[in-house]
Design a protein around this nucleic acid. Structure first.
Lengths: 214, 214, 214, 214
DNA sequence: CATGAATGAGATTTCATTCAT
DNA sequence: GATGAATGAAATCTCATTCAT
């Protein structure tokens, strides 16, 4: 919840501040991230940041929400209507979109990871809620899958949702490994988008059928 | 590599310092963790820490090794000979032991997670190596499984190892959720150890057979 | 290269800081000089110094340049055109001005001596360059003297320049001795300026004719 | 004035400590020189230094005296009886010996320079006394020269002594320049001893006859 | 006599935040 | 609304010195 003054800024300036702040929080811990560095790079006065935001925490929360919205709208725009696909196709689209976000918005991705794993001004409770939100989303998906007869009604939905959430959390790391990329490649976004699909096919197949011999 | 001074301390004091340092590094990123806080809580002089350790980084590396050894010896002591079990039984034992460690050594567990995800004095390269070590371990396991005919020779070993590593990373979080525990419960270790087994059975089954309807 | 912040300060405050810093660096080696002491005496916050300067080294370099400029402008203002005087008269004027600077700017003088002889953030190479600059200046003077027929063409210019540089370095010490002064007298500047001239005459005569019997 | 315990040490150990301490004080300011570093390198306990010496200052004074004695005995051993030589030949021998000391005992030389120019636990008064001791020595020499008819009775003895003292202080620096050496060459003592003589001849001639055209 | 752990002062530096202009 | 100087707490680390064993 930045102050109104922030939204009164010319879009260009607002975006500059947002981007630089995001870069800082993406590459540093909440505690280690430095407002001083941000304002220095942005070429604005330190006091101005306090005209725009209530303080460091306020800025953090703003970016956090921004990242969440960005991810949501990215994925929403890429993934088709869940009703039009069977569960596993939908899962694949979802994960491809998710991977796409990580690749095309590496800053947002890395900030998101820090929210989950690193220091943050959130209480532990709130952190758990975030993780649960993902799990709950997958739970909803699975329940619908059962209702539509795509999944076994006896499926342990909690456990399966956990499996999906664990995979999706680490998926980015796996893809980078598989494509032999590193963070810098992400920045420059020279990703072979079509190379993504077979990787996801493989992962989804494993989730679907397990690793056991048939 | 603490200095000899540290090892000459009476065990009680040494353990106190180790525990307090571990608590600090378990609840804060490397940069945010504060030597000053540690010595304050330990009731020792600031200079004394520098008699014991070369500096912050030295202390961190010491704890890091400690955690690694603790985990290794814990798991080694709990998990039976891999040759005497089929793959999935072994996996279950492994993950139970792993979960047991997380439950009974929550500080060590959280410090370990920070090494993987948070800021650290390690170079990115070294961090990747650690993650890869886990994946490689699972790869070895899977390859043996194939050789023993327990797994399909066509299994994508990399992808499957990634799946296992992702699950094992998040397993602690899932168990805490399932048992409705939080960090404080972990500290007091009032865990129903026998409640663990069915949870693992479920997870292993999912990994084994996937989530699809049969 | 202090920050703009420093130059924006009211002259009074800027001068206070400069003077106190100069006093500290004049009476202590670079390593021993203490920013903490300076800010304490100046009655400003520790952090403020870092608004003004990049750090200890930056402050040191600033003072170093200040001293150099002060000396240059002082001497330039006192010493007449070298073309209008014979070599030894010019030398005398030069050394009188130099002594005058040492007497009237004792802090600057002592800081300068420390740059030459004491610890400093300069590399040894740079220190040599400074010393050489003085020697080179005298070499230039001597060469011109030869060209103008005032000196023997066979004069060993290097050795003579060394002699002049050695004398000029220690001249202040000699004058203080001769006039029975100490550092405190310098501070209060109760110097009999006219007493200076015969001393310099004597020294110049020695340099000119040597100490041997004629 | 070290404590008796120091002199009770086996010579080998005593020399080791002396040498390492000298190295430290030769390359650092009094303030910056570190007892900790010395004992670390010497492999002895910190407390032991306080059994040997009253403290940092005591150690410093001990080394200071040692250096003085070393220089005195070195020069005494090299320079012939002053009665057997004319003044300028004696001066030349003196300065050659002095230069020889600087070259063959660089640590002692550099420590001596620090005593004169750098920070030290001596009061300013004491520092002046040391400088004066050198000047007084040259004064005695000059007075004897006058008495023996080698110098003009009207010579300004004070000024001439100052000249000699200034030259002798900087002589080392000049020689190093002339022979194109640096500190490291000193350490390894690969000095062409015979190259020294003509340099000194030149310098002495300048002192003797001045730089003026005849 | 030797040891070396303990101490606390003091060093440089960074940071979030406030507030007068 | 923008500025940026001022602040002081807090961080890491080094050091000379003491003292119990």
């Amino acid at each position: 919840m930045p102050k109104q003054t922030f939204f009164n800024l010319p879009k260009q300036k607002r975006d500059l501040i947002t981007r630089l702040a995001l870069e800082e929080f993406a590459s540093h811990d909440y505690h280690s991230a430095s407002l001083s560095k941000i304002v220095e790079r942005a070429g604005i006065a330190k006091g101005s940041m306090y005209q725009y935001f209530g303080g460091k925490k306020d800025l953090y929360l703003y970016l956090f929400n921004l990242v969440g919205q960005a991810k949501l709208s990215y994925i929403t725009s890429k993934v088709p209507d869940p009703e039009s696909l069977d569960l596993f196709s939908y899962l694949k689209e979802l994960m491809m979109a998710s991977a796409g976000f990580e690749i095309h918005h590496p800053l947002e991705y890395r900030m998101g990871m820090r929210v989950v794993y690193g220091d943050s001004p959130f209480k532990e409770e709130e952190r758990q809620q975030m993780k649960n939100a993902v799990v709950d989303f997958y739970k909803g998906l699975l329940i619908r899958g059962i209702e539509r007869g795509e999944l076994d009604p006896d499926l342990d939905v909690d456990a399966a949702a956990f499996l999906l959430s664990a995979v999706s959390l680490e998926l980015g790391s796996f893809i980078m490994n598989r494509l032999d990329l590193d963070s810098e490649d992400l920045q420059s976004s020279k990703i072979d988008w079509e190379a993504l699909e077979p990787i996801l096919d493989t992962v989804i197949a494993l989730i679907k059928n397990g690793i056991a011999r048939r």
